[in-house]
Computed example of a mutant assay.
Amino acid sequence: MTVSTDDIVRHAARLLFAGTRLDLGRMAAELGISRTTFFRRVGNRDELMGAGLRLLSDRTWQQALDRWHAEHGDAVRDPAGRLRCLWVMEDYRREVAGNEGMRKLFETESTVALRVLTDPRGGVQPALVDAHVDLFRADAEAAGLTPLVPLPDLAFAVVRLGESFLYSDVLAARSVELTVATTLLDKLVQGALER
């Protein structure tokens, strides 16, 4: 059986989700391929970690969208009037903050994790910004809102501020305060999307 790049990335994502350190030599052996083939397919450890974390991030984002849809269908607002994008963003942050694998990664490799997660040329942050842009655009159109700033700029600000709170224990030796993050990010998005 041929082991594809996607197979390797999925394996890395499973290990990261479980809180297991990525040991590329061990992974190559587990998958039954040579180290040379392994590196040729996925690059270095940071690149593989980025691909695995992006896969986990994409899945977590999609799961948040699916939970919204299960609770509210195609509505753009919940019964209290809160925009879908605000709900999805909060659900995503809560899932990331509560993930044991992510906590373990930050306990053991905080510098590498931060570098990989927040690299503007990496796989994780740009994909998350794009996901926010798509959701902001859909919500603005469905709710008849006019963005006061370009949506990529709003999405970038939201993602960066969200990272500041999600990783505040590592970045600033502060406890992670998701309620404060939700309040600030909700106000930022509501202020940037005008009726």
Rank of each mutant, 00 (worst) to 15 (best):
S4N: 07
I8A: 04
I8V: 14
R10S: 13
R10C: 12
A12R: 04
A13V: 08
A13H: 07
L15Q: 15
L16C: 07
D23F: 00
G25V: 05
A28R: 00
S34H: 08
S34P: 06
R35V: 07
T37I: 05
F39D: 09
R40S: 12
V42L: 06
V42N: 02
M49D: 06
L53W: 10
S57M: 13
S57H: 12
W61E: 00
Q63E: 15
D66T: 02
R67S: 08
R67M: 06
R67W: 10
G73V: 00
G73P: 01
G73K: 00
A75L: 07
D78Q: 02
D78I: 01
P79Q: 07
L83Q: 05
R84A: 09
C85A: 07
W87I: 11
M89A: 13
M89Q: 14
Y92F: 15
R93Q: 15
R93K: 08
V96T: 03
G98H: 03
E100H: 06
G101F: 04
M102S: 05
K104M: 10
L105R: 12
L105M: 14
L105V: 10
F106Y: 10
T111N: 05
L114K: 01
T118C: 11
T118V: 03
G122R: 02
P126M: 03
A127D: 10
V129L: 09
L135E: 00
R137E: 13
R137G: 01
A138M: 11
A140S: 13
E141P: 01
E141V: 15
A142K: 12
L145F: 12
V149E: 08
P150K: 04
L151A: 06
P152H: 07
L154H: 02
L154K: 05
A155E: 00
A155L: 03
A157F: 13
A157W: 10
L161S: 11
E163L: 01
F165S: 01
L166M: 14
L166C: 06
V176N: 09
V180D: 15
A181I: 00
T183L: 09
L184H: 09
L185W: 08
K187Y: 03
L188T: 14
A192M: 15
E194Y: 09
